[in-house]
Design a protein around this nucleic acid. Structure first.
Lengths: 129, 129
DNA sequence: TGTGAAAAACCAAATAC
DNA sequence: GTATTTGGTTTTTCACA
């Protein structure tokens, strides 16, 4: 880890999607150098993963489309799990309000909902706090 | 946020450097679609930043090259800040051992060291715990 | 979404350190 | 001997219809 590696980490931490070329221009070396150094940083475990940061504390409104034939069963099931459920009158669609600390947790709830037999699709509105 | 956005987030969370094309192939849509959706996820704040994950709990050995003329001043300063300092006998080089919780903290220490007048360069050995 | 031009990534060989 | 650059090829990005 010399200064160059350290500069690379700094740039990637701010934007891991920055192209090798951009980084190379910034640090005034060739693209191949950057590519090999990043590969080494990754292999050595200093870069554990390239990832994204999502908001902490999110409120979600999950719109669930339900197969009409299975609606009663699905509604029953959802009501047992979630408090804030809104059935849209005269419709087979359901809306669930959810508050979680991370988007991950929201996503895992959406996964659960989507795995219920009779759920056709979901659409999630995110409100960042 | 529909299922597609959600799938995109899942992939990017595992590897934010995955190309739009790869994601497109995986989700069986066009590259342009992925690019636009990612741009929207970013603009809406659902993706806060593209970043890298570095190890928690790291031990570093920082090798510092010092300008011989300023060595006494630099050594004085370093000794005031760090406990584990090793002067290499008959040399102007100094080695500092450091334990921190994140690479960030190591890096900010390296920044401090590098900003000291008389420090020519640093080289950091990282041991992952 | 599909197309075409520009940019970036990749690979292997040559060179510098 | 390892790391970097260079030149040529493939792949990706990006704008526009």
């Amino acid at each position: 880890m010399d200064e160059k590696d350290y500069e690379i980490l700094k740039l990637l931490r701010e934007n891991s999607r920055m192209s090798n070329m951009e980084i190379a221009r910034e640090l005034k070396v060739s693209e191949g150098t950057i590519r090999k150094r990043i590969a080494n940083l990754y292999k050595s475990g200093i870069i554990k993963k390239f990832t994204i940061e999502t908001p902490s504390s999110v409120e979600a409104m999950i719109l669930v489309r339900v197969d009409p034939k299975k609606a009663p069963y699905v509604l029953e099931k959802l009501k047992n799990i979630y408090h804030e459920i809104y059935e849209l009158s005269g419709s087979i669609d359901v809306s669930i309000k959810l508050s979680k600390n991370t988007l991950d947790e929201i996503n895992s709830e959406v996964d659960n909902i989507r795995s219920i037999d009779g759920v056709i699709s979901t659409d999630t509105m995110i409100r960042l706090k």
